[in-house]
């Protein structure tokens, strides 16, 4: 275990890392959509206006 290892193909691990990749992309897209959908309204509620807010 202490020596250097060359990564070998392991479908199970690849699927595990793939699942994290897919989750990251879905979260990016999902939260992006949510931000566009409720962001301005949320800012109006919190700050009282959104025109000057990015």
């Amino acid at each position: 275990m202490s020596g250097l290892e060359i990564p070998t193909w392991d479908p199970q691990t690849a699927m595990l890392i793939g699942a994290i990749l897919v989750e990251a992309v879905l979260l990016y897209v999902g939260y992006g959509g949510l931000e566009r959908l409720v962001g301005p309204r949320l800012m109006r509620v919190i700050v009282g206006g959104s025109k000057d807010v990015q």
Partner: peptide
């Protein structure tokens, strides 16, 4: 990936 092969990644 390397840690995952050794069971080190907990989803």
């Amino acid at each position: 990936y390397l840690y995952g092969q050794s069971g080190g990644v907990d989803l």
